[in-house]
Simulated scan of single mutants.
Amino acid sequence: MLSHHTPEQDLPSHTDRERDRQRLDAALNDFLAKGGQVVEVKPTERAVGGPSFVISAQREELRQLAEAKPATEVPDEDLVRLLRARALLGDTLRTASKRLQQPLDRCHSLARAHRLPFKVGYVKGGSRT
């Protein structure tokens, strides 16, 4: 062995790859044994009922949370959570209040109190929120 050679820099060998394949195969078998399902979708097809692609799983969860239909009377804590999700998705405060079917004044006061980072949008009269 040469003095400048370190074993950490070695490329993965054929046996390392085979070991990884076996580990993945065992994990997949465990997943299936616990009742999991694998649905294969071809690259040219789209999953039934799903988006064409998901940029981030966390962002997708936020979108689903934000688009959930709230009851007519929503507690402040839940509304703040929904408003935060809409803000992170890039909505304006006016759009968020319409989508959540909540009064703009209530949404505005909660957004201001919790310093929610809403996108600035045009408001009739030239002022900005």
Rank of each mutant, 00 (worst) to 15 (best):
L32H: 06
R84G: 04
G35L: 00
R112E: 14
P7S: 11
G35T: 00
L79D: 03
Q64F: 02
L93E: 03
E40L: 11
Q9E: 10
H14P: 00
G90D: 11
M1A: 10
D20V: 12
G36T: 11
V39D: 06
R59A: 11
H4M: 02
K69Q: 15
N29P: 00
T44P: 02
I55F: 08
S97C: 13
S97R: 06
V48R: 13
D105R: 14
A113G: 09
V123R: 09
C107V: 09
R23E: 15
R46K: 14
A27H: 05
S13N: 08
E45M: 05
G36I: 09
M1T: 05
S109I: 07
G121E: 12
P75A: 07
E61F: 09
G50I: 00
T72Y: 03
P7C: 02
K69E: 15
L28W: 06
M1V: 07
K69C: 12
V41P: 01
E73Y: 04
R21Q: 12
R84T: 12
R46F: 07
V74T: 14
P51D: 15
A57H: 14
L82I: 00
V80F: 02
H108N: 06
S127T: 10
V123T: 11
S127D: 10
K34C: 10
V41C: 13
E45T: 01
F118Y: 07
K98I: 08
M1H: 08
D30H: 07
P117L: 11
Q9C: 02
Q58H: 12
L93N: 03
D20K: 14
R112M: 09
E8T: 05
E40V: 08
L110Y: 02
Y122Q: 10
Q58R: 14
A87V: 06
L2K: 10
L65V: 03
R81P: 00
P7G: 01
S3K: 14
E60R: 11
Q9I: 01
L100I: 00
A111Y: 02
F31M: 12
A85D: 03
Q64I: 04
L116C: 04
A57F: 13
M1F: 04
T44D: 15
D76V: 08
L104A: 05
I55C: 04
S13R: 14
D78S: 10
D20T: 10
L100Q: 03
G36R: 10
A113P: 01
S109W: 02
Q9T: 06
T15Q: 13
S52I: 07
H14Y: 01
K98P: 00
E61K: 13
K42H: 07
Q64E: 13
L79M: 13
A66Y: 08
A47G: 08
R86F: 01
R115L: 05
G121N: 09
R59L: 11
G125V: 14
T15M: 09
